[in-house]
Write a protein that binds this DNA or RNA. Structure first.
Lengths: 348, 348
DNA sequence: CTGTTAGCGCTTTCAA
DNA sequence: TTGAAAGCGCTAACAG
């Protein structure tokens, strides 16, 4: 071994900036593969060897390079999380829970925000797949044919979320939006409302909730008197304007209840009602969706459908982890219905 | 070239599942590097060559492997985004804006949620750095010494956000929390309040806002009559309980205004006030922080400090992109104060 | 405008 | 329990 005294020149890794596994190996006096094992499967090595490596890691300031590791091992320890948007929405809890669950097992999250157009999702999926994630959590079940194909060809576990379908790509954690619509219909009909208006975003899942609502109403001989479809994203002013239009409609199209596709729109509608001196729910009832944390604290408290977003994130992540670890998964577990809760509060 | 007729066996890439650049090159009848160029620098190639490659990409179903690309080029096209949390918070807009801005330039976001403990941040930073991101956007300016060191050693552009300091690690986009506190003091003193209580989370930035508030009050000879520090995360029930304690305090510690470290806590405090028949702001004034989208729609509308989270995200991302593209950056631009707005609404 | 050569930093596979 | 050789899929650097 070359003498390495105080007078010697700075070692290579110090000059270059980034120490590699090889630098660590050299300093520790072992082979590179031993360093790799010390970091990834320490149980295979002697205490003594581990100590040598640990010291070398410290003295070199070595930081693992997972890019090289991923290429060599064909496992990236990366999970892609695809959502329409994260701003002002119900998905935040899902992201938090999924990230936490995955992090606990050493996986990191690659975030993809796809907007609400399937075309953008298509492009995003291609980019994301180029990172070779070990698994994917994707929002919704309606994707373009190309997206489905690519996802399938990637041959990695996929979890679709926040929706329900009999034909998932792979696994699924969510709930039925049609069922949500039907539950709203039942709850509101039960309270005596008969003149329904819908204030909705231009969003596929919202559309399916509306379809479920309309179907259940039709079954009872009740028809929707008015529908206003708004461009995403949901904002309160948007909800307020939409409600204003509904209130201004000719008398025979004026509702006694407004079903909104999100709490945010609903809160806007409540504001508009208040500004017109309309009492909620006596003059006009209002229902939201999402159970954002303020929903119970509006005046009157907002009726809404509560979704456990954190549970969805946690379960979706867990399904992936189980697959990674080759845990046996009965066919029934590939689809998990997390359900929802219809909360009738003061506004209906 | 070997004859490749209809009768021939399926090509290798079809058997293996994933086509590589080499497979594409073979099919296109060009060299691998030409395929690489066709994908990354098409302007260097002939229309004709591009067409051949495009056809081969299609027929092989090739999906770029950015893991290998990152290793070879030492550029990952990945930006790490580190936040305390994403659930129920003001950071959502920042994430959305940063992600959008970066995506437009072909960068993807690696999400890291660090919690509010610097120790967890430390571990997270190490993991994140092992992915060799091209840049980092990190929340806050108070990190452990080890974190700072590692960040510095990574020799990549760093943007700290949502805070202000004279000594950033590299670049900074944010605002001064001390200034926020001072502005709150000025605004509230101006409305005649003299008995201040603080309802705050155990969070470093909140603490600095409080410090700014207290300093400004002290200057005017006003002291804080009571402070209640709550464990993160902020929830409305937590705010409500905190407010209840403040209201139940002995008379001489009872406030005429409660300054909350977040809108969520403030909304809880308003609920507690209402439940006790206290009028806001006549009996008790309340101020929040964050300007969550419901703040203007509470009853009465919540006074708060508005932060443009989207601007922070967009600017932070832009600073990184400028660095990546070697855009000249005057020293002054390394620190950007995005400011804030004190909104006195009905609750004060 | 296109190709050749070499190698990024790690892990797999086999061998000792 | 440790090591040697080979190679993951791509791109930098240079050549033509």
């Amino acid at each position: 071994m070359a003498s390495k005294n105080k007078a010697g020149p700075a070692p290579a890794w110090q000059a270059t900036g980034a120490a590699t596994l090889i630098d660590v190996a050299r300093v520790a006096g072992v082979s590179p593969i031993t360093v790799s094992r010390a970091l990834n499967q320490p149980e295979l090595l002697t205490e003594k060897t581990l100590a040598k490596v640990a010291a070398a890691v410290l003295s070199t300031g070595y930081v693992k390079n997972m890019v090289a590791g991923a290429l060599a091992s064909n496992r990236s320890k990366l999970v892609a999380l695809l959502l329409p948007t994260i701003a002002n929405t119900i998905f935040a809890d899902t992201v938090q829970a999924a990230t936490d669950t995955l992090a606990a097992s050493g996986y990191q999250v690659l975030l993809g925000l796809s907007g609400y157009e399937t075309a953008r999702e298509e492009a995003l999926v291609e980019t994301i797949l180029s990172r070779r994630p070990d698994g994917i959590i994707i929002t919704g079940t309606s994707h373009t044919e190309l997206t489905r194909q690519r996802l399938l060809q990637a041959r990695i576990p996929i979890v679709e979320t926040w929706d329900m379908t009999p034909t998932p790509i792979d696994m699924l954690v969510g709930f039925s939006h049609e069922a949500v619509g039907a539950a709203m219909a039942a709850g509101l009909l039960g309270r005596g409302y008969r003149r329904f208006a819908i204030l909705t975003l231009d969003d596929p899942r919202g559309a399916r909730r509306n379809a479920g609502l309309v179907a259940a109403l039709t079954e009872q001989g009740v028809t929707v008197v008015n529908t206003d479809t708004l461009p995403a994203p949901a904002t309160m002013p948007l909800g307020r304007e939409g409600a204003a239009r509904l209130f201004a409609a000719p008398k025979k199209r004026r509702p006694d209840v407004i079903v909104c596709s999100s709490d945010t729109l609903a809160l806007g509608a409540m504001t508009e009602a208040a500004s017109r001196g309309l009492r909620v729910p006596e003059d006009i009832a209002i229902m939201g969706f999402g159970d954002l944390h303020y929903a119970a604290h509006t005046v009157p408290p907002l009726s809404t459908v509560s979704i456990d977003g954190a549970a969805i994130g946690r379960l979706a992540a867990q399904r992936l982890l189980d697959r990674f670890n080759h845990v046996a998964m009965p066919a029934a577990m590939r689809v998990t219905d997390t359900g929802f809760q219809l909360l009738q509060r003061g506004s209906t």
